[in-house]
Amino acid sequence: MKMNPLGRTGIKVSELCIGTMTFGTQTDEGESHAQIDMALNYGINFLDTAEMYPVNPISSQTQGDSEVIVGNWIASSGRRNDVVVATKHSGAGLRHIRDGAPITACSISEAIEGSLKRLKTDYIDLYQFHWPNRGSYMFRQNWRFDPSKQDTTSTLSHMEDALEVLQREVDRGHIRAFGLSNESAWGTSQWLRMAQAVGGPRVASVQNEYSLLCRLYDTDMAEMSVHEDLILLAFSPLATGLLTGKYQGGAVPEGSRKLLQETLGGRVTPRVFEAVEGYLSIARRHGLDPVHMALAFTLQRPFICSSIFGATRLDQLEHILKMDGLRLSDAVLDEIDQVHIQYPMPF
């Protein structure tokens, strides 16, 4: 498994990362632990979770269970030093987490303490803000920019206060690095500028959605990443399973996410299945597995450090891991570009 530097942190992570958002709902604890063991045997050392997980569904009854399951594995395996653990601080909107309050200087230490307890560890390798207080362009919220909910002065003040608290947590040994998620080019640039101006941990990474079907990162965010040496952790590289082809022709497999979330978070549109077919046809012509092709595409982008994927079952994980080392030819990449031009924004 290829290892990549996590920005300027000195931490090395595998180019594939296990996402744990189904641990505790679709994936029980025994299966979750087996997945972690298998992933490590294949050379993956990177786990991503969050205080709000699991999803499908999100609920107050299960909130934090994914971290608990990872923590139980850490405690029982004794292999804390073999994994890089990333987790996230939820932003505003989830009523069962801090009554839906936004990220504040006061909430950061509280949230870190909660994650440390659930994860049964003394430190978090990468601590991320799950989405900014200003809102996000992810999750199909990119169609209309509304500046009425944004205030530059309060945003910059929040960043300064947050960096001060984050630095204290670094000094206490509770976190090693700081990252963002569902962020914009302006927001990321301001975090970088603020850390340089007032101190605090420099942003190491951004975790945004990125796949053959979702390439919003390819423009201003990509340029920022390359010039600022700030890497992308791509989530949903299989577009919630759409790129596997399993939903083509109206199919909804038993146990699949689409049974629980019919629109797959707004990704199911009249054009998306045509776009998926375009990519599936490339895989067929070149004798590629579509899952492997979709993941390999993300790993060959110049700004990506690691792709975060989730597997509900152990056999799905085993299938994914068979793509280790795959790199797509120029011919395949050229054909991918042509489908992307035809279907640039399928959802």
Rank of each mutant, 00 (worst) to 15 (best):
N45E: 10
R168D: 11
T155A: 08
Q141W: 00
L166V: 06
D334Q: 00
T240A: 15
L116K: 06
M323L: 11
D218A: 12
G91V: 07
Q26E: 12
S59L: 07
L326P: 01
S205W: 03
L116S: 07
D324F: 05
M345L: 01
S307E: 02
T298M: 09
L288R: 11
A331R: 07
E228F: 13
V339Q: 02
F129L: 05
M138D: 09
I69D: 04
E160L: 05
T104S: 12
T155H: 11
L212I: 14
G78T: 08
E113L: 11
L299C: 14
D122N: 15
I18R: 02
I231F: 12
Q196E: 15
T312K: 02
H130Y: 03
R301N: 05
V206M: 11
V83R: 00
Q35Y: 09
I124V: 01
S76Q: 09
S107T: 12
G173L: 12
P102H: 12
F235Q: 08
S184H: 04
Y137G: 06
P290S: 11
A75I: 04
S154D: 09
A331G: 01
G43N: 11
S32D: 09
K322P: 02
E31D: 12
D218W: 04
S77Y: 12
W191F: 15
G325D: 00
N45I: 07
S256A: 15
T22G: 01
R95K: 13
S77C: 09
H227P: 02
R98M: 05
D161R: 06
R267V: 07
L216R: 14
G266V: 15
L280G: 10
K120P: 02
Y53R: 08
P57G: 06
S76E: 01
T244F: 05
S181P: 04
A50T: 06
Q338W: 03
Y123R: 08
E29T: 14
A101N: 10
N56F: 10
D220L: 14
P344L: 00
L116W: 02
S109R: 14
I36E: 10
S256C: 15
L116E: 03
T62V: 13
T188K: 03
L295P: 04
A92G: 03
N45Y: 10
S307F: 02
K246Y: 15
V252W: 03
A311Q: 04
L94N: 01
E262M: 11
K258L: 14
D122C: 01
E318S: 09
V70T: 03
V226Y: 15
F178V: 09
L333T: 00
T20G: 08
S307D: 05
G310M: 02
K120G: 01
R257P: 04
G71S: 08
G71P: 07
P5G: 04
L230M: 14
T104D: 02
T121Y: 06
R176I: 12
S32L: 02
Y210W: 10
T27P: 04
V13G: 05
F145C: 09
S329L: 00
F309N: 03
T9Y: 05
